[in-house]
Design a binder for these strands. Structure first.
Length: 321
DNA sequence: TCCATTTGACCTAA
DNA sequence: TTAGGTCAAATGGA
């Protein structure tokens, strides 16, 4: 590590930490470049490459955490940086890569339900009127009634959790006061290989840049070019998180005039318009809260209201915690 | 048969 | 003690 230790005293500690993180990232990026310069080795050691990528992404997350307004101590709190999760390797192999950190991060699975509850890791909370495709494949793993809350909270994990050790999760809950509004909490950072656009979407934009607002509909406008790149999306598991939408499996489409007004929370990805009337036919509204490509659970009514009430713009607020 | 969701049970942090 | 987060068996759809 080539980071300097002789920081000017006037520099806030969080800036120093941020610089250190970025310096680490620089080193890792150089390392990655070296790897990429030897294509013959990449095939043989793709796991190492993935590992480096994961570290770099974690570094970014840490830096963002440090520099976020809510972090006055300059303490990186990204749990995924505690562990360098190497995609495509088994747990056993993982323990070789970073045994200690894995212990601190991975749930201790000795028996059912035995795990280490996440402490305040790297989380991002968004409020949005539309449940959007954030570019990742999510899988629902739980649903809970929350105290003093009318609506249940839905829990999603990255679909690549087991195959690639991705620890990212998210929680989706309707706001009591505004039923058409959702609170989406992203916990942790993706370390999976599903990075083609997902990382750009989820990690790319400057967290301070709230201008990432995509408007779909007739006059589709995309602010922020970075987001625009996301639309050359990969076709990923469309049904993640929403069995109710399974019948739509073959309708993967790209942006079009009738695309749903789901601007992306962190950027955008392809979204679809579907016969929403099917959604309202006796299906449990709460149960339909879904992430991933089909990120909406709105009934036809809600959907229309959203479109009219918000001029097809995704309205979101973002907080870092 | 496979895969994703549902849901009750289990465990931990507060 | 309790609320929240996760697990995993059961269930259902393709």
């Amino acid at each position: 590590m080539e980071s300097s230790t002789n920081w000017p005293e006037s520099l806030p500690s969080n800036r120093i930490k941020a610089i250190q993180e970025l310096t680490n990232g620089q080193v890792l990026t150089n390392k990655l470049r070296e790897m990429l310069g030897q294509p013959e080795n990449i095939k043989a050691d793709i796991e190492s490459v993935n590992g480096v990528v994961a570290q770099i992404l974690g570094m970014f997350d840490n830096t963002l955490s440090i520099l976020s307004p809510s972090n006055l101590n300059g303490i990186p709190h990204n749990p995924n940086n505690d562990v360098i999760t190497t995609p495509n390797i088994s747990d056993d192999q993982k323990s070789v890569v970073s045994d200690e950190s894995v212990k601190t991060m991975m749930p201790v699975k000795t028996k059912r339900g035995c795990y280490k509850r996440r402490k305040t890791g790297s989380t991002r909370t968004k409020f949005t009127y539309t449940l959007t495709d954030d570019g990742y494949a999510w899988r629902k793993y739980g649903q809970k009634t929350i105290l003093n809350s009318i609506h249940q909270r839905n829990y999603f994990r990255c679909s690549h959790k087991f195959e690639q050790g991705c620890q990212a999760t998210k929680q989706v809950q309707k706001i009591d006061d505004e039923p058409s509004k959702y609170k989406i909490t992203y916990i942790g950072v993706h370390t999976c290989n599903n990075l083609q656009r997902a990382q750009i979407i989820d990690e790319g934009p400057d967290p301070m840049d709230n201008s990432i607002l995509i408007s779909f509909g007739k006059n589709t406008t995309v602010k922020n070019n970075k987001v625009g790149t996301c639309f050359q999306s990969t076709k990923h598991t469309p049904m993640e998180g929403n069995p109710s939408l399974s019948y739509l499996k073959h309708e993967q489409v790209s942006l079009s005039d009738h695309d749903a007004p789901w601007g992306s929370v962190m950027g955008a990805s392809q979204v679809q318009s579907y016969p929403m009337s099917k959604f309202s036919s006796g299906l449990d509204y709460e149960n339909m809260v879904s992430p991933g490509v089909f990120s909406s659970t709105c009934s036809t009514h809600d959907y229309d209201d959203m479109a009219k009430g918000h001029d097809l713009d995704d309205i979101l607020f973002e907080m870092y915690s």
